[in-house]
Amino acid sequence: MKIAIASGKGGTGKTTLATSLSSHLSETQDVVLVDLDVEEPNSRLFIRGDQTHSQSICKQVPEWTGDCSLCGQCQEICNFNAVIKVGTQIMLFPELCHSCRACSELCPESALPLKPRKIGMLNQIQAGNLIFVESRLEIGEQQAVPLISQTKDYIDNHFDESYIIIYDSPPGTSCPVIEASKDADFVILVTEPTPFGLYDLKLAVEVMRKMKKDFGVVVNRDGLGNNDVLDYCDMETIPVLARISNDRRIAELYAAGELIFSTIPEFKEQLLLLERSLELSTVVDPV
């Protein structure tokens, strides 16, 4: 089971929910939490444990051998302007390269062999029974998608279906979010009950529908603004999975990098509710 936690708007509580839900579930099950918000990964700030693995993540980019007839086909082939011919040189701009391999494989003289280029670091941490994996984009790299995609490959290669896998997705509605949620079985959209929250939620819903995903909404800071988010979900028949109340204590714990569910009972109640609606519980409810 793979669950992606996403939101249109940033700062709605994605990381709070992802870290708490996965820590809570890991008390009874095998859980892997994966931070795919590679531009600003901060789930790690809430996870206490030991690093068990670390590796560079690379993408394959062409490198010019310096020896060719300068036919210029590579420049004509590249749709991203990552390779150009200037005078007697072939110049490459690796941060523009999408690693499609076309220039390299179609070069008649094999003068552009592929070489790995580091785009980020992947770290794995063991925190009790919870396994945490994060990837961090190198500053100056502009493309998050290849790093997200390779991080998911790492997860697929190391953890089988017996694990519950939780993705902390990047915010927004563009490519990185799609990459992060495209193979999820279920997506939780976190929002807050304000006009900004609602507007961005609608965009996120549009993305999920376009991707034909099963999804539900968690309202964070419930009670803060108005009822428009709840009315919208009702009208669109989108399930509201949990409502986390607007509680200053939560913001304070979050600020300090503490996990919230163990300290605030009302929050834990909402997590249990979420767990039941996702049918993740292993224990039958005693009600």
Binding site: E39, E40, N42, L45, Q142, Q143, A256
Partner: peptide
């Protein structure tokens, strides 16, 4: 938000940057 290509474009040619942040582990990070 973020550090990717959209922010790079927004910063190019700027004279002054105003950060809006909060005193939390994530905000600082």
């Amino acid at each position: 938000p973020g550090i990717g290509c959209a922010v790079n474009s927004a910063l190019s040619g700027a004279d002054y940057v105003v950060f809006v942040t909060e005193p939390s582990v994530s905000g600082i990070h």
